[in-house]
C-alpha cells in the first residue's frame, strides 16, 4: 500500500515540483549569460581598468538585476515548495479530503511516510537544483573574471592532468582546515553531504509533524500548526547552536592545553544530530496523534 500511496502523492506534486525546477533553470541560464559578458567588460571593471560609462552602467545594472532575481528565485523556490507541500499535506490529511485519506485501508505510518518520502524527494530535487545553479553561476563568474590562459598555464605544470591538479588542491585545503580550524575536511564533507541529503526529509517530518500537532487544538488548527513549525525550527536552531558553541569552546580549551584531536567536526555533527533527533521525536508524535488522537472536524 505504501507504494500506491506514494504513486498518488507523486501524481499530485510533480507539476508544482517541475515548475519550481524550471524556474531555477531559467534564472540560472539568464544569470550565466549575464555573468559571462563578452569583451572582458567584467574583468576590466574588477581590475580597475578604464571602462566607458555605458559599459559600467550595463555591467552594474545587469549584475544587480541578476543578483536580485536570483535571490528572489532561490527564496521563491525553497519557500514556495515548502509552502506548497505543507498546504498539500494539510489539505489531504486534515480537511474534507482527509475523510478519504483516513478511511483508506492503510496504516497511519504508511500514510505519513508516503507523504514524507515524496515531499522529501521533491525538496531534495529543489536543493540539488539550487546547488547546481550556484555552481553554474560561480563558474560563469570565474570565467568572466579569469584569463583562461592563466589556468592553462597552471594545468601545464600538471601536464594537463586535471585530477592531479584537483587532488593537490584538496590536499592543500585539508591541510589548511586542519591547521587553522581543527577540522578534517573529509569528515566535514561527509557531514555536509548527509545534511544535504537528509535535510529535506528532516524538514518535511518537522513540518508535517507540526501541522499534525495543530490538530490537537479545538480551534485554529492550521495556524497553530504553522506556529508549532516556526517554534520547532527556532528551538532546534537554538539547541543546535548552543551545543555547537559549547563544543567548539571546549575544543579551543583542549587545543590550547595541547590537545591534538580534531573535534571541531563533532560540533557540526551534533548540529545535524539535533535536527535528526527533533525529526525522530516529531515522527513519533505524529504517529501517536494519527493513531490515538485523530479528530477530524
Amino acid at each position: 500500500m505504501l507504494g500506491k500511496l506514494m504513486k498518488y502523492e507523486w501524481k499530485n506534486t510533480w507539476k508544482a515540483g517541475m515548475l519550481m525546477l524550471l524556474g531555477i533553470f531559467i534564472v540560472t541560464v539568464a544569470g550565466c549569460i549575464v555573468l559571462q559578458m563578452p569583451g572582458g567588460v567584467v574583468s576590466n571593471l574588477v581590475d580597475g581598468n578604464e571602462a566607458n560609462a555605458a559599459q559600467t552602467w550595463l555591467v552594474i545594472s545587469s549584475f544587480t538585476a541578476t543578483l536580485i532575481l536570483y535571490v528572489i528565485m532561490l527564496l521563491a523556490s525553497t519557500w514556495g515548495m515548502l509552502i506548497f507541500l505543507g498546504i498539500r499535506f494539510y489539505r489531504s490529511m486534515y480537511t474534507d479530503e482527509g475523510y478519504l485519506s483516513h478511511t483508506l485501508p492503510v496504516t497511519a505510518n504508511q500514510l505519513f511516510l508516503s507523504k514524507v518520502l515524496v515531499s522529501g524527494v521533491w525538496y531534495l530535487f529543489i536543493m540539488i537544483g539550487i546547488g547546481i545553479s550556484i555552481v553554474a553561476l560561480l563558474v560563469s563568474l570565474m570565467m568572466g573574471l579569469m584569463d583562461i590562459s592563466e589556468l592553462s598555464g597552471v594545468l601545464t605544470q600538471y601536464n594537463g592532468n586535471v585530477w592531479e591538479f584537483l587532488g593537490d588542491g584538496i590536499y592543500e585545503l585539508n591541510r589548511v582546515y586542519e591547521e587553522q580550524m581543527g577540522m578534517n575536511l573529509l569528515h566535514y564533507g561527509i557531514t555536509l553531504l548527509l545534511t544535504y541529503v537528509a535535510g529535506p526529509f528532516i524538514t518535511m517530518i518537522t513540518l508535517f509533524g507540526a501541522l499534525t500537532i495543530g490538530q490537537l487544538s479545538s480551534k485554529h488548527k492550521g495556524l497553530i500548526g504553522i506556529l508549532a513549525y516556526a517554534g520547532l525550527t527556532i528551538l532546534s536552531s537554538i539547541i543546535g547552536s548552543t551545543v555547537q558553541s559549547v563544543f567548539m569552546f571546549s575544543t579551543n580549551i583542549v587545543s590550547s592545553a595541547g590537545g591534538t584531536g580534531i573535534t571541531t567536526n563533532w560540533a557540526y555533527d551534533i548540529n545535524v544530530l539535533t535536527s535528526a533527533l527533533v525529526a525522530a521525536i516529531m515522527y513519533g508524535v505524529s504517529y501517536y496523534i494519527m493513531n490515538r488522537k485523530l479528530n477530524l472536524d
Binding site: Y99, L100, L104
Partner: peptide, 17 residues
C-alpha cells in the same frame, strides 16, 4: 486498516479531490 477495507463510507461532504 482491517475494518476500513470492509466499510464503505459516504460522508456528509465532498471528500474527493
Amino acid at each position: 486498516p482491517a475494518t476500513k477495507s470492509k466499510v464503505a463510507y459516504l460522508p456528509d461532504r465532498t471528500y474527493l479531490t
